[in-house]
C-alpha cells in the first residue's frame, strides 16, 4: 500500500473542504489500496460524522444517512415494511462482517470486480486509461452484456444500488463549494464510452450525505439474484422488481437489473412492454425481448443473455402470481 496523509473530519463541511479521498467503511477502498489499484495521497475519515441515521420524512419517504451500514439498513423495520426489495438486495450481498462495515454511500461507489481491473499485469482502461481492455477477448463470464463500449465491459457490482434504482432513489450530496445537490439515481452513473474510469457524475470532493427513498411503492417487491455460489458471491444477473396488478392488468412496473451493465440497469421499454398487459408468459417474453434487444455477448458471457431472459420471466411470474 502506498502511504497517505490521514485526517478525521469533524463535519461534512470540513470533510469536503479537506480535499482528500473519503473513507467510511473502507471495505472496497482498502482492498484496492492494498493492491495499489487505488493510491490516494490523503484519506479523509468520515466514519464518525453524524450521517448514520434513517429518518422518516413528512412526505412519507425515508432519508438514509450515507454512513448507515448495510446491515442496519437491511434490518430497519421501516425498510422491511415499505421497501423489502432493498432489504433483500442488501442481504443477498457480501458477508455478515462486510455488511456490518460497508456504508450506504460507499456501496453506491463500489468499483467493478472485473478480473482485469484487479490484475495489474493486464490492460484495463478503467484502471489505466488508454491501455486497452483485456476483458474483451478474455475470460469475461461475469462481465457486462448491456451498456458496454469497445473500451470497457465491466459491471457495477452492487446489489443495493439495483434495488435503489427500481425504487427511484435520490442521492443527496455536499459539494466542495458548500452547495448541495440532489441527483436521481437514474442520472448518477455514467456509461463507460471512451472514459470508463469516470463512473458517476460526482465532482471532485463531492460527498454523498444521504439517499432519499420516495414513499413506499404499491405492488409486490422482489429481489432475485443468480450467482455461482448460494451465498457470498456477486450477481451473474439479478432483478429488483416492483409490480402492481389491478383488474387483471399490470398497472405499474419498476424493474432494475444487476450483473448486466456498467450501472444498475433500467430500461423504460421493459416496463412499457408490461404496463396495461394481463400477466402472462407472452407479456413477460415481450419484456425480455425489450431488455435484451441490444444485448451483446463477448464469448464466455454469452450465456448471460438466455439466463437473463429466464430470470426475468421467473421474477415476473413470482411478482404477478402467474404459474409456469
Amino acid at each position: 500500500m502506498k502511504t497517505f496523509a490521514y485526517s478525521r473530519a469533524e463535519s461534512p463541511e470540513a470533510a469536503v473542504a479537506a480535499g482528500g479521498r473519503f473513507i467510511a467503511g473502507g471495505t472496497n477502498l482498502l482492498d484496492l489500496m492494498k493492491l495499489q489499484i487505488e493510491t490516494p495521497e490523503s484519506l479523509v475519515d468520515i466514519s464518525r460524522l453524524d450521517l448514520a441515521k434513517i429518518e422518516e420524512r413528512e412526505d412519507g419517504g425515508l432519508t438514509i444517512g450515507a454512513l448507515v451500514p448495510n446491515s442496519d439498513l437491511a434490518a430497519d423495520p421501516r425498510v422491511i415494511a415499505g421497501y423489502p426489495v432493498l432489504s433483500r438486495a442488501l442481504l443477498a450481498g457480501a458477508s455478515g462482517q462486510l455488511r456490518n462495515k460497508a456504508s450506504t454511500g460507499g456501496n453506491l461507489l463500489q468499483r467493478t470486480r472485473c478480473y482485469y481491473f484487479y490484475d495489474k499485469a493486464t490492460a484495463c482502461n478503467k484502471r489505466e486509461p488508454g491501455t486497452g481492455c483485456s476483458a474483451i477477448g478474455g475470460v469475461n463470464r461475469i462481465l457486462a452484456i448491456l451498456g458496454t463500449s469497445e473500451h470497457c465491459i465491466a459491471t457495477h457490482p452492487s446489489d443495493m444500488a439495483v434495488a435503489m434504482r427500481a425504487l427511484d432513489a435520490t442521492i443527496v450530496t455536499l459539494k466542495s463549494d458548500g452547495d448541495r445537490r440532489r441527483i436521481a439515481i437514474g442520472e448518477f452513473y455514467r456509461l463507460p464510452g471512451d472514459t470508463p474510469q469516470i463512473e458517476n457524475v460526482l465532482e471532485a470532493g463531492e460527498l454523498i450525505t444521504h439517499v432519499e427513498l420516495p414513499t413506499p411503492p404499491k405492488g409486490e417487491q422482489l429481489y432475485r439474484k443468480v450467482r455461482d455460489r448460494a451465498s457470498y458471491a456477486f450477481a451473474l444477473v439479478s432483478v429488483a422488481g416492483i409490480v402492481s396488478v389491478e383488474d387483471g392488468k399490470i398497472a405499474s412496473a419498476a424493474l432494475a437489473f444487476g450483473g448486466l451493465g456498467p450501472m444498475p440497469w433500467r430500461d423504460p421499454a421493459v416496463e412499457a412492454a408490461l404496463i396495461g398487459q394481463a400477466p402472462s408468459d407472452a407479456a413477460f417474453a415481450a419484456a425480455a425481448d425489450a431488455l435484451l434487444k441490444d444485448a451483446k455477448g463477448y464469448g464466455t458471457n454469452d450465456f448471460k443473455i438466455p439466463l437473463t431472459r429466464r430470470t426475468l420471466i421467473a421474477s415476473l411470474r413470482e411478482l404477478t402470481g402467474v404459474s409456469a
Partner: peptide
C-alpha cells in the same frame, strides 16, 4: 475468508479490511 474476524463495539467485522487508526 473471515479468519481475521473480531468484534468492534459488539459487531463482527474483518479486521484486515479496516485501518487501525480509525
Amino acid at each position: 475468508c473471515g479468519a481475521c474476524t473480531v468484534l468492534v463495539n459488539g459487531r463482527r467485522i474483518n479486521s484486515c479490511l479496516t485501518l487501525a487508526v480509525m
